[in-house]
Simulated scan of single mutants.
Amino acid sequence: MKSIQVAIISDIHGNLTALEHVLADICQKGIHQIYCLGDLVDFAPWGDEVISLFKQRGIPCLLGNHDERIAFDYPVVPLTHHDAVETANRDIAIAFSKRTISPENKLWLSNLPFELSLTFKVEGIFKRVLLVHATPASNEEYLFEEDDKGTVLSELARRGMDVLVMGHTHHSYIQQFSEALLVNCGSVGRSKEADRKATYTILTISADSIMAEIQKVEYPIHAVADAIYNSEIPDFYADFLLKS
């Protein structure tokens, strides 16, 4: 039976090393379609290089909330789930991105779409996939596995979508409902899962189904942590990566 495979990545957060290892893994699997759900910047030293790689590779990408803040120089608003220590370190890390990402790359970020709707035709059957950074309503809303999905499922049914793929939470999951398949593809560069491995998703689309698989990729995480320690980004973000 014919099928189409698509790789979906998200939440790079300036971690060029993790991104390169994930792209190599996707290439090794022979997958040629790649989409990114955004948040290319902040928390590792290579935000500018990550953006340049996306531009060079021509990988379609969405506007994550971190990308939007850098592109339009929006103020940093404290988050209720961050304590005082993380809030202070977050301010410093985002200021680093604002200072070091080039005007050309900020302009490129500012033109990224909020969402992408993909329609695949497989053996005469149409399958529709909606890609968002966080939810269809906001690129800042958190939708965890345990959260109620009623509103999102109603929106997907209204729009005739078979699958929703999102990121933002840095926690991957797959949930099949009668209305649609929901997938969080996890984070490439700043996973909050216990193993801290770079995480992405493969969709396999056929005429009778859409299957999702979470992929985990090892990368030299200690080298990335050392680069953060040796940069102007707070040590907080290196310590986080090493808490595996």
Results as ranks from 00 to 15, higher is better:
5 Q>D: 13
22 V>D: 05
151 T>Y: 12
52 S>G: 05
219 Y>D: 10
216 K>T: 03
119 T>F: 01
137 A>D: 11
56 Q>Y: 14
32 H>M: 05
188 V>W: 13
125 I>A: 05
7 A>K: 03
115 E>M: 15
50 V>A: 09
96 F>W: 13
32 H>V: 11
167 G>A: 04
133 H>F: 01
236 F>N: 03
165 V>E: 08
200 Y>A: 08
91 D>F: 13
213 E>N: 12
208 D>H: 12
199 T>S: 11
24 A>F: 15
170 H>P: 06
117 S>C: 07
37 L>Q: 06
115 E>W: 12
81 H>C: 08
164 L>E: 05
89 N>P: 10
180 A>I: 01
221 I>N: 08
141 E>A: 04
53 L>M: 13
124 G>I: 02
4 I>G: 04
170 H>F: 01
239 D>R: 14
6 V>N: 03
12 I>P: 10
164 L>Y: 02
104 E>P: 09
125 I>E: 13
145 E>R: 10
14 G>C: 04
220 P>W: 06
70 I>K: 06
4 I>K: 15
111 N>F: 06
164 L>R: 03
31 I>M: 06
141 E>P: 02
96 F>Q: 10
212 A>V: 00
156 L>R: 09
197 K>P: 00
150 G>M: 12
33 Q>T: 05
64 G>L: 04
26 I>W: 13
154 S>H: 14
136 P>Q: 09
22 V>M: 08
229 Y>N: 13
184 N>P: 05
29 K>F: 02
32 H>C: 01
61 C>H: 06
175 Q>M: 04
101 I>E: 05
5 Q>L: 03
34 I>Q: 02
216 K>H: 15
200 Y>Q: 06
55 K>H: 05
219 Y>S: 09
215 Q>K: 15
30 G>P: 08
223 A>K: 13
221 I>T: 13
90 R>W: 06
210 I>C: 11
221 I>R: 15
176 Q>A: 12
108 W>M: 01
222 H>L: 12
87 T>A: 13
240 F>N: 13
230 N>F: 09
1 M>N: 11
203 L>K: 10
58 G>Y: 03
82 H>I: 00
167 G>P: 10
7 A>R: 05
237 Y>P: 00
80 T>R: 14
14 G>P: 00
162 D>P: 01
60 P>C: 11
129 V>S: 07
92 I>A: 13
238 A>F: 00
109 L>N: 11
207 A>C: 07
48 D>E: 14
212 A>H: 06
239 D>H: 14
208 D>M: 05
57 R>T: 03
52 S>A: 14
31 I>H: 07
53 L>E: 10
15 N>W: 01
177 F>G: 01
236 F>D: 00
5 Q>R: 15
133 H>N: 14
34 I>R: 11
116 L>C: 07
175 Q>C: 01
166 M>W: 00
230 N>H: 14
190 R>V: 02
56 Q>G: 02
122 V>D: 10
176 Q>G: 03
131 L>D: 06
9 I>Y: 04
173 Y>E: 06
184 N>V: 00
74 Y>V: 01
123 E>T: 07
205 I>R: 14
127 K>M: 11
105 N>G: 09
160 G>W: 10
165 V>S: 06
98 K>Y: 12
185 C>V: 14
105 N>L: 03
